[in-house]
C-alpha cells in the first residue's frame, strides 16, 4: 500500500481554525465552553497547546513589522513519524503503524500511562483524563479506509491542507517551495521529508522552521534513546548473574561443614595462635 501524507502549506493558511473545529466534530472531542475554562493565550490562538480533547491546534506566532503584524501560522498535530518513538515505549501495544504510514493510537487498548507523551520529541500525545487514555491525531484512518480525506483536509477553505500519496505530496511541496522562493520567501523550508525517518504530515514553512515553532532536526529524547540500551543490557546482565549463580550452585554441590560451638571455635583459634 502506498504511503499517504497530509501536506500543510502555511503560506496558504488563513488560520480560520476550520480544521480544528472539524477535527473535534468528526472525532467527537468536546470544547471547553464554560467561563474561564480556556486560558487566555494573548493571541487569536484558541488554547496554549494541544490537550486531551484537542488533537489539532492552529498556532499563531506574530511579529510586529513596519507595515503591521506578520503572522506565522502552524498546524500543531501528530507528524506520524516513520520511526515513532511513542510506539516503541507503549507498554500496551496501543500504538501501531498502519501500512500507509499512519501512526495510530487505539484508545481501546491505551492504558493512560503517558509514556508516549514523554517519548514524543514534539510532546504531541496528550492525556485525556476523563477517559484515562492518551489522545492524538489518527490521520482519520477510519475515513481514509473508506476512501475519504481526513476531516481537517476536507474542510480547509484555503486549500492549505491536501492529502494523498506521500510521494505526490512531496512533489507538490517542492514545487510550492520553489514558487515561494521565487516570490521572495528566502527562508521557506519543507519540514517532514527526512525528519524522524520521514513524516506523514508535511509542513511548508514560508518563514523558516523556527518562525513556525518547528523543532529543527528532531531526535528521539536522550532518556528514551537510553531505553534501547538499558533493555538489552538488562537481559544480558540478568543472564550473566543467573548463569554465575547457577555455576556457583553447581560448584557448591556436596559442600558440608562440621558443627562448631563457642568452646570448640575458641580452642581452634587458640591452637592457631600457638602455631
Amino acid at each position: 500500500m502506498a504511503e499517504n501524507a497530509i501536506l500543510y502549506d502555511a503560506s496558504k493558511c488563513s488560520a480560520c481554525k476550520g480544521c480544528q473545529v472539524q477535527c473535534k466534530q468528526w472525532n467527537m472531542m468536546p470544547s471547553s465552553l464554560g467561563k474561564d475554562e480556556n486560558e487566555f493565550t494573548g493571541s487569536y490562538q484558541s488554547m496554549p497547546d494541544l490537550n486531551g480533547d484537542t488533537r489539532l491546534l492552529i498556532e499563531f506566532r506574530e511579529e510586529a513589522k513596519a507595515n503591521g503584524i506578520e503572522w506565522a501560522f502552524s498546524r500543531r498535530a501528530c507528524f506520524h513519524c516513520a520511526e515513532p518513538t511513542c510506539m516503541e515505549v507503549c507498554p500496551a501495544g496501543a500504538i501501531s503503524k498502519l501500512d500507509d504510514g499512519t501512526v495510530k493510537l487505539d484508545n481501546t487498548k491505551c492504558v493512560g500511562c503517558k509514556y508516549c507523551t514523554a517519548a514524543c520529541p514534539f510532546e504531541v500525545p496528550k492525556y485525556r483524563e476523563a477517559f484515562n487514555v492518551s489522545n492524538k491525531c489518527t490521520l482519520c484512518d477510519d475515513r481514509v479506509a473508506q476512501g475519504r480525506e481526513p476531516a481537517c483536509v476536507q474542510t480547509c477553505p484555503a486549500a492549505a491542507l491536501t492529502f494523498g500519496p506521500r510521494e505526490d505530496m512531496l512533489a507538490a511541496a517542492k514545487t510550492r517551495l520553489d514558487e515561494l522562493k521565487a516570490e521572495g520567501f528566502d527562508k521557506a523550508e519543507l519540514y517532514g521529508e527526512t525528519e524522524m525517518g520521514g513524516m506523514h504530515s508535511l509542513f511548508i514553512a514560508p518563514f523558516g522552521l523556527e518562525a513556525h515553532g518547528l523543532v529543527r532536526d528532531p531526535k528521539k529524547p536522550d532518556a528514551i534513546a537510553l531505553f534501547a540500551l538499558i533493555k538489552p543490557l538488562t537481559g544480558i546482565a540478568a543472564a550473566a548473574v543467573f548463569g554465575g549463580l547457577g555455576l556457583s550452585f553447581l560448584t557448591g554441590i556436596g559442600y558440608s561443614r562440621d558443627e562448631i560451638t563457642l568452646d570448640s571455635a575458641s580452642a581452634h583459634d587458640d591452637a592457631k595462635e600457638e602455631n
Binding site: C90, A92, K231
Partner: peptide
C-alpha cells in the same frame, strides 16, 4: 518494562 509482553497480554 518489556512492551512486547504488555502487547501480548492485552490492555
Amino acid at each position: 518494562f518489556v512492551p512486547a509482553i504488555g502487547a501480548a497480554v492485552g490492555q
